[in-house]
Amino acid sequence: MAELLFIAVALLLGLSALAGALGVSLLGGKFLEGAARQPELVPLLRSQFFIVVGLVDAVPMIGVGMALYMLFAG
């Protein structure tokens, strides 16, 4: 049973990391694209980028929390 728990925790952590990494890297790519196209908009793009990065990592963070809870409670 403990093995299954470890596999579940590993899957939760791994998929959370993957989702977060994909989201943030896509955002970063779009930020660079926008900055290259319109450099005068960098301050505005920076604010939007900062805000949306905070929103993107919400669900992966919940996954990380759940995984650690399972690990320590189990």
Binding site: G28, F31, A35, A36, V42, R46, V53, D57, V64
Partner: peptide, 18 residues
Amino acid sequence: RSPKQILANVYTSEVGKV
């Protein structure tokens, strides 16, 4: 100022946050 520096700063901050 440069987008590269901004991106690096946000990425390292995000890693630190996690």
